[in-house]
Amino acid sequence: MDTAVAVWGQLATLLVMAFALGLDAFSLGIGIGMKGIRLIHILQIGLITALFHVLMPLCGMFTGYYVGTLLGNVATAAGGGLLLLLGGHMLYSAMKGESAPSFDHGTLWGILLLALTVSIDSFSVGVSFGMFDSDLLLTVLLFGTFGGIMSVTGLWLGRRAGHWVGEYGEAFGGIILLVFGIKFLM
């Protein structure tokens, strides 16, 4: 019974974290989509963003696992602190009102840079999850799926014109990361 509860708790945590990290791609996608984007570019950006949302947390988890074996019991506190810092930074950036960087999303380098930009926080969260010995395959698949789907959704909605979520998506994601950071520190 306790094992089943732990598995469902881990799944719920991963789903919420994947959603929170996908909000960054979603909100940036809205901004880019509002500038005008072709459907083929929406699909390309979505696929590459999904790939980066798999690779970045994977690298982070390996790093976190290594750091976790070095730090031992301090790893949980370090992971929670990292989530607090990341969530605080996302919230600060959203409140400060930094505009989305302008990318030439029609080139491979532009798409790669865009995907890296929206998935860099997945690396940090991956480090935290590596310290907690999270399920590797489930984590990266959920992060990749949510990152890709939310990127495509944001680009498509932005293309259709929707200025309402772009400003608040990153703030909401930051709040979610702050809450989990506090939870891991308790």
Rank of each mutant, 00 (worst) to 15 (best):
K183A: 11
G158R: 02
G110H: 07
K96P: 08
A20Q: 01
S151H: 05
G79R: 01
L114R: 00
R159C: 06
E170N: 08
I176Q: 03
A20Y: 02
A20W: 01
N73P: 09
L178G: 12
T49G: 06
G181I: 01
A115M: 01
G46Q: 00
L112M: 10
S99E: 15
S99W: 07
S128F: 02
V67A: 12
E167W: 08
S134G: 04
I48S: 08
V118L: 04
L112K: 00
V127C: 10
L157D: 04
S99C: 10
A50V: 05
M95Q: 12
G110R: 06
I45M: 15
T145V: 14
V67H: 01
L23E: 11
V74R: 06
V16K: 02
L28K: 10
F172H: 00
D104Q: 12
L43R: 10
G106S: 15
L138A: 11
S134E: 02
Q10I: 13
G169K: 00
V67F: 12
I32N: 11
F146C: 12
G110E: 09
G36F: 07
L23H: 07
L177E: 00
L83S: 02
F146L: 15
L114W: 01
L136D: 05
S119R: 00
V125K: 00
V16G: 07
T139R: 06
G81P: 05
W109G: 13
Y66Q: 10
C59A: 14
I120K: 02
I45S: 15
G64L: 07
L43D: 04
A50L: 09
S99R: 13
I32Y: 04
H163P: 10
G158Q: 01
L47C: 12
T107D: 11
V152I: 15
G169R: 00
K35Q: 14
G9E: 09
H163V: 12
S102W: 03
L15V: 15
F123T: 04
L70E: 05
L23F: 13
A50C: 09
I45Q: 05
G162M: 13
G22F: 03
W8A: 15
K35N: 11
P57T: 11
A6P: 06
T117V: 05
A75F: 02
Q10A: 14
A25P: 12
T145N: 03
L21A: 09
Y65T: 09
T107C: 10
I30N: 04
V16R: 03
S124T: 14
